[in-house]
Nucleic acid binder design. Structure first.
Lengths: 252, 252
DNA sequence: CGCAGTTTTGATTCATCTCAATTTGTGTGG
DNA sequence: CCACACAAATTGAGATGAATCAAAACTGCG
């Protein structure tokens, strides 16, 4: 019953690098969420070993054939889209426990680039096999759907940000979002290192890097945060949150 | 084997309104894409009758409990998100064959509103049952994943638009997108009625309604389109496309 | 220690927003 | 069927937030 095909699964990219969901401290954030011991073991067998990336390396590029989705095991990524005419839009930043690559499912070809912003490691999840397994394990299927849906909801949030907020509101929302995600991973909500440049933040927020820099400076002047290059300390979370409500509380 | 529970399925919302995927001329655009005759029949059994909506009616609201996704059978919808502080962002416009409601999967609660912009009709697809069926029919499962992934990719396109484009580029992209979708449904690529107001277009594009109106007027002055309120005729598709490349072809 | 990439800051320009007035269209009820 | 009222769209003038252009300062890497 559990003498399965495990012996055939040889991790190609990083031999000897054991990544078992059941042993992973991210399992509550990641794809195996809610699985039984036994089902988690079946997922382990499917996951094709880890892959390590140096800072700056691409996990995949727009145009690459889609085969797998990826779970961030450690490190930090950005995804971005670029058009023929040279426009570049960062569509997201991904940290441990988050899933990358779902853009490729629809056409079997990735539509964006995923780049490691620091030395990182991902778990490789072959998608066809994931589909096969998820048709047997209902909770896995449902969780996969939740993960994809969550991505859609997140994207709506970014649209809201880009469509309705002013520069400082965008940056405040961005910092609070990071803070909240770091918290969920057991890190300080108030103090963290940004892994991305001002230009990448700007691209994500639909702003120029100078505008991002100015907003940081102003937040610092006002005592909301302290900034030292990429090191951020949030000094006044409530007041930062208050920035998200427009200055004149326009209601109804 | 096929004497199933059909006799128990009583369409609640619109008795007698038969909606069979196998008979639907949208099946190539919609969820049943790629299914065999037999599998399509099984999908038919699951789909809980049609629901008609008058213009202005909500299909669902943010906060509603999630149970089903919906396929637009006829008509036109918008989805929008609103925040506590009164911001309103249109996240999409949906037409025949497109799927609505996937935002609700992640938390079992809808996070946006879906409103009919004209008298419309949807097919109701109970999600739990769809998951059950899709674990049996592999091509259905895969197509569902494709539909969700396509939504993610579409959202990235909107981010690109909101993050990098200027007002007239946004409107040009919007018109070309509509044109392309109408074409796919057998309508004229060049002539159509907008179902949404300038304000709704503006919300979607991250612009004020006046800016949308001005951009329309300018396009008309330049002979790109002809505008009569909501009636649009695109006169010069190539030149409209050319607007999307930035004025100075910034490359590399 | 020096250089390249990144960030900060300043001065100016420009696109879009805001406020306001007018026109046009639409639906309703007499 | 027409008139009225209300919603939607257009257009103008002026204000403003962010972009652009430019230069200097800082950081970290080799």
């Amino acid at each position: 019953m559990h003498a399965n095909v495990k012996q055939n699964v040889i991790p190609i990219t990083a031999p000897g690098l054991k990544v078992a969901c059941s042993q992973c401290n991210l399992r509550e954030l990641c794809l195996p969420f809610g699985l039984s011991e036994n089902d988690m073991g079946r997922l382990d067998n499917l996951i094709g070993g880890g892959r390590k990336l140096k800072r700056g390396q691409h996990l995949y590029r727009a145009g690459d054939h889609f085969e797998s989705i990826f779970a961030v095991k450690a490190g930090f990524f950005k995804t971005d889209v670029l058009t023929e005419d040279g426009r570049d839009q960062v569509t997201g930043f991904q940290m441990a426990g988050e899933i990358l690559g779902m853009d490729g499912i629809s056409t079997e070809v990735h539509t964006c680039n995923a780049v490691a912003l620091e030395d990182s490691e991902v778990c490789l999840i072959p998608f066809t096999e994931l589909e096969m397994l998820s048709s047997e394990i209902h909770s896995l299927q449902h969780h996969l759907h939740k993960v994809m849906s969550r991505e859609i909801v997140r994207d709506h949030g970014v649209m809201m940000l880009l469509g309705t907020m002013r520069a400082e509101e965008r940056l405040a929302a961005f910092l609070l979002n990071l803070s909240q995600r770091f918290t969920a991973r057991g890190y300080s909500p108030a103090e963290f290192h940004l892994r991305m440049t001002r230009e990448e933040i700007g691209s994500y927020l639909g702003l120029k890097l100078e505008t991002v820099s100015r907003a940081f400076s102003r937040f610092q002047d006002e005592g909301l945060i302290s900034v030292q290059q990429k090191h951020i300390r949030i000094l006044d979370i409530p007041r930062l949150k208050a920035l998200l409500a427009p200055p004149d509380g326009r209601i109804g």
